[in-house]
Amino acid sequence: MLKKSLFLCLLVLIIFIGCNKNETLYKVVGVKDGDTMVLLSPDKQSITVRLAEVDCPEKSQAFGQAAKQFTSALCFGKMVKLVGNQHDRYGRTVGEVVLENGTNVNHELVKQGYAWQYRTYSKSMELAMLEQQARQNRLGLWQDENPTPPWNFRKEEKTQRVEKKVKKVKKPNKKRRSRKHQDTVAF
């Protein structure tokens, strides 16, 4: 009996501590594009966050500006919880952003048709289902007949930049013959 009472008290204490755990909240102070934002920590440190497992159209791509506006309307100026602390090659924190009301910004972007599930980095069945529903309902970018995934768009842009550089380098160098040389060659 004593063991059961002690166990029950311990369980209640663990639950109480878990529920009262102070979670750090950040203020959204900037939205760079649909899946990248700037958060301000309680100690006034700026943190650039790349939303995990999703990929929005690039700003110069169809629906890129709409994705940015959607993200801004959803969370700019609001307090959010940041889940995750990995960093990408650009030094951005990669994670999920959750509003105080529990709305997961990453999931909401996919659900409303403003992002793809980034399958290279995500195996989430929930995100896959949200994307499929958005496609079926032709929401956001799914209004297009054949939307280009942002990873393909970036790859194509990079290829075009490289080709442009190669063309500049391969331009034939038109050397002018000196007048003296031209005179001696002509018979």
Rank of each mutant, 00 (worst) to 15 (best):
K78M: 02
D33P: 03
Q160D: 12
R177E: 15
D144A: 14
N106L: 05
T93P: 00
T184H: 15
K32A: 12
E156W: 09
D144V: 11
P147Q: 07
V97M: 02
Q160H: 11
K3T: 07
C56V: 01
E156A: 15
L139H: 06
V98G: 00
S124D: 01
S178I: 09
M1Y: 05
S41W: 02
E163G: 12
F70K: 09
P57G: 03
N104D: 11
L2W: 06
S124P: 02
Q132W: 05
R179M: 14
R176N: 13
Q61N: 00
K3N: 07
N20S: 05
G30R: 07
I47N: 02
S41R: 00
K27I: 12
I47V: 13
K158N: 13
R135E: 12
G30W: 05
A128M: 08
E156M: 13
T36F: 08
V83P: 00
N173G: 13
E96D: 10
E156P: 06
S41L: 03
V97N: 04
K3G: 04
S46E: 13
A67W: 04
N101H: 01
K170V: 15
A67P: 05
P172L: 14
V49L: 06
K111W: 01
F7L: 14
K158S: 13
T93S: 04
P147F: 11
F63G: 03
M125D: 06
V12Q: 04
L10R: 00
K81D: 04
E126H: 06
P172I: 15
L10Q: 04
